[in-house]
Design a protein around this nucleic acid. Structure first.
Length: 604
DNA sequence: AGCATTCGGATATAATAA
DNA sequence: TTATTATATCCGAATGCT
């Protein structure tokens, strides 16, 4: 443990990492580990209770509720299905749904299959899902404590475990929108241990190509599961990602586990104020727009993740950009899109690129030995007040230029937590409105929700100037405005970017789980837009039939945009950084599913 | 080998509502 | 009083680069 003793008087020794805390943390951890089985059941607890409410709605909508909409002139079949599909999206969404379903006519033969099996099944099984994941964790940790309803006989137990794992995977695949029989077939084809992404890939390949294949798929599995795999042996020279064959969605192109190379500097295909570097990008015919699409996620994902993501998006090479070239904070992200690359134009006015210009009041307090000119990535959590006070006290008790050792420790914390100098020896995290400014949102965009939620939402958001620079090519292409399908919208970074570009949005269908985020987007929309905004709570309810209904009603989508949640990808995540295996990451496949659906419908 | 960076999660505690 | 919500504080490792 490093003790950080102040320079001033010897009596006032200051512990940077106090051993006392360490011990407490240790005992706390053991307690947490031994009770983790209980914790797992506890985490399940809110789920079923919420699902009970859902289940009541789904088992049978109340007669009066149905009758009310029948009285409005809707057919009973449509009302029942709409209530079922709408979930808990609210009354307004229900009316929207009724209107769209009416566009489709009364022929709901196809829908019955979906409504009967799929929805309740996924609802019920996701509970098992969580349970099994926790169980797996226990096994991996070598603990043999099992939860109450486990079986005693170990052989049966393993067997059951395998079976439930299989079911678990089938359910995950069904949740992604694959037919159940295809899912089961894929597991037979690729084995019990195949990862979700490999299985999904297999289904896609067999669906599109038609011919069955069974390649060396275990490569991906090794990358995902085995913990002891880090840099064993030789570092081969990596090929540039230009060498990746386009259009081939087959995962069996030799050593396909070759990780994607991140460009250095991370400037994407072009930057404003730069000589346009020639970038040749040949999009496969399947990928060509319209509809245009734009997918975003963290650049520093676990190994192999971007290769898989790219494979599901027509093998398009991601455009990796660090937003530090657009604003005063870093933000390394990858963007896969099929937009034209010529004639991009930046958003004006350009935001400041240094901390000093962005926040002049900090200059007075900024020590000469803190060389930072930009912030690191804006994240969803902020530092504790205790740390700030530690830093202040330590510096107060130090000499004017603090000893190098103190400088190093302080700088380390400042960089880790993005602290700014706001007073004498006083650092503080950025305020929400300062983050809004750095990210290119209008002032008070996220105001009105609690502070913690603001940090969370902003930390998950786009950097508007960066995204807008890429989207700027759309302005001349759609002078009358465009229809947008916005997935995982968050606080509406995509919408704000389009608006600031002067692009009219005729219709936006927005999928966002968080209620506060939907409120923020709705509020912004109502005071800036004239078009139609339809907000959807649960991405699962955006079925292909519903997509088709929207397309018939509003015309086709011109842009499908969104970034799938990165919880299982982000480096800051200590707990479940399991790539595309995680619960949240399956939402990426929802993005793919919906994009495919839009394309196939609009192709006709 | 060392260094820097990272759209986070789980839990306890405090504040507020009912 | 209890229930719900907001805040506080703790928790490393994977990855790429020099």
């Amino acid at each position: 443990m490093a003790h950080w003793v102040s320079d001033g008087d010897g009596s006032d020794s200051f512990e940077w990492d106090s051993d006392g805390n360490g011990e407490e943390a240790g005992s706390f951890n053991t307690a947490g580990a031994s009770s983790s089985a209980m914790a797992s059941t506890n985490t399940d607890a809110p789920g079923p209770s919420r699902r009970v409410a859902n289940g009541n709605g789904k088992a049978g909508p109340s007669a009066s509720l149905v009758q009310r909409y029948i009285d409005m002139g809707f057919a009973e079949e449509i009302v029942v299905k709409a209530i079922k599909d709408n979930g808990d999206n609210g009354a307004d969404a229900l009316v929207e749904l009724l209107l769209t379903y009416q566009e489709l006519g009364n022929d709901l033969n196809v829908d019955n299959g979906f409504a009967s099996g799929c929805v309740p099944q996924t609802v019920d099984d996701s509970g098992d899902d969580d349970f099994l994941e926790n169980w797996d964790d226990l096994d991996a940790g070598g603990r043999s404590t099992r939860v109450a309803n486990s079986v005693d006989d170990s052989g049966d137990e393993d067997f059951l475990h395998e079976m439930s794992q299989k079911d678990n995977k089938i359910d995950s695949l069904v949740k992604m929108g694959f037919p159940e029989d295809e899912a089961a077939l894929a597991i037979t084809r690729c084995g019990q241990d195949a990862s979700i992404s490999v299985l999904a890939d297999s289904i896609y390949a067999s669906q599109t190509a038609g011919d069955g294949y069974c390649g060396n798929l275990s490569d991906y599995e090794d990358g995902g599961r085995n913990k002891g795999r880090f840099m064993d042996g030789n570092n081969k020279k990596r090929k540039r990602y230009g060498s990746q064959a386009l259009g081939s969605r087959g995962p069996l192109d030799g050593s396909a586990d070759e990780p994607m190379l991140l460009p250095n500097p991370m400037v994407g295909f072009s930057l404003p104020d730069q000589w346009p570097r020639p970038v040749n990008r040949d999009l496969p015919a399947l990928a060509m727009g319209p509809p245009y699409f734009y997918y975003e996620n963290v650049a520093l994902a676990p190994k192999g993740v971007w290769t898989i993501i790219s494979r599901f998006l027509y093998d398009i090479q991601p455009e990796f950009v660090d937003s530090k070239y657009f604003c005063a904070a870093a933000r390394k992200r990858g963007y896969i899109h099929n937009l034209p690359l010529e004639n991009r134009s930046p958003l004006l006015p350009k935001p400041p690129r240094t901390i000093t210009v962005a926040f002049p009041h900090t200059k007075r307090w900024w020590p000469s030995w803190d060389p930072r000119q930009q912030f690191n990535c804006l994240q969803t959590c902020v530092s504790s007040a205790k740390l700030l006070e530690k830093i202040r006290v330590t510096l107060t008790n130090s000499s004017d230029p603090p000893p190098p050792r103190v400088q190093k420790l302080v700088l380390e914390e400042c960089r880790k937590w993005n602290l700014a100098w706001v007073g004498l020896n006083k650092v503080a995290p950025l305020e929400p409105d300062e983050m809004e400014f750095l990210l290119g949102f209008p002032k008070d965009h996220t105001r009105g929700i609690c502070r913690t939620e603001r940090f969370r939402s902003l930390g998950n958001s786009f950097q508007v100037d960066t995204v807008a620079y890429h989207l700027s090519v759309l302005k001349d292409m759609y002078p009358e405005g465009m229809n947008v399908l916005s997935l995982f919208s968050g606080i509406g970074g995509a919408e704000v970017a389009l608006h600031r570009l002067g692009i009219r949005m005729k219709t936006v269908i927005s999928v966002e789980k968080s209620e506060v985020n939907r409120t923020i987007l709705r509020s912004w929309w109502d005071q800036t837009q004239t078009g139609t905004l339809i907000e959807i709570n649960d991405v699962q309810t955006l079925t292909s039939e519903r997509i088709e209904a929207y397309i018939r009603r509003f015309g086709g989508f011109d842009l499908v945009i969104g970034g799938s949640p990165c919880n299982n990808l982000a480096g800051s995540n200590r707990h479940h950084r399991n790539g595309l295996e995680g619960e949240h990451s399956s939402l990426f496949f929802q993005y793919v599913r919906i994009l495919e659906s839009v394309k196939s419908i609009q192709r006709l």
